[in-house]
């Protein structure tokens, strides 16, 4: 394993000096932790294509750089993750440990119910979510509507031909194991 790492460093070293690497890592951290609005949805980090243009290196070199960067940020408890927006591949940083997401209580409830429903059936409608939450007097209808809108904007859910589906952020922030746990907890409600 150590030998492999040394090999990678040796491959990179003729291309990039230590000083350039430090500068590149600083720039990568800045761009990978930026948040943008793209088609009225929040997105994190940068697209792979734009990163290639900015760094002006070929794909293989970029991959080596990102591998090194991944090892560097893992010390900080962070992880480099890839996700898809349409056909584009994007990169951003994610916490390696459980931490509170930036959602309020109502949004967390609605997202939890969506996960609970979506894990057992493929097609879930807004009506079904509303029915569950309002008939049990858990949330008022306006609060459900507002939470759905906010979750859509923040990149957690998306509408796909009148059905609600996960967007990239739910899949990144809640792994499969966590989604199943949430589903089990939802069933106890």
């Amino acid at each position: 394993m150590e030998n492999n790492n040394t090999d990678k460093e040796q491959k990179l070293s003729p291309l990039i000096t230590d000083k350039e690497r430090q500068e590149l890592f600083r720039e990568l951290t800045t761009i990978l932790t930026r948040r943008w609005i793209k088609d009225n949805v929040e997105v994190f980090g940068v697209s792979q294509q734009d990163l290639l243009i900015v760094t002006r290196v070929d794909i293989a070199t970029l991959e080596h750089i990102l591998e090194e960067y991944q090892a560097f940020i893992s010390i900080l408890g962070l992880e480099l993750v890839y996700y898809k927006i349409g056909v584009e591949t994007w990169l951003c940083l994610k916490s390696n440990y459980f931490a509170p997401p930036e959602l309020n209580e109502a949004e967390l409830t609605v997202l939890g119910v969506i996960i609970g429903l979506r894990e057992s059936e493929k097609k879930i409608t807004t009506k079904k979510i509303k029915e569950f939450l309002t008939s049990n007097d858990y949330l008022k209808e306006y609060l459900v509507n507002e939470s759905i809108r906010s979750l859509t904007y923040k990149g957690y859910i998306r509408k796909k031909s009148n059905f609600i589906d996960y967007n990239y952020r739910t899949l990144l922030e809640f792994d499969e194991d966590e989604r199943i746990k949430i589903k089990e907890e939802y069933e106890k409600l």
Binding site: L78, C92, F98, P101, L111, D175, E185
Partner: peptide, 11 residues
């Protein structure tokens, strides 16, 4: 419970 099970993105 939902809050406790998230590994959020960083910005």
């Amino acid at each position: 419970f939902v809050r406790k099970n998230a590994t959020p993105l960083i910005s």
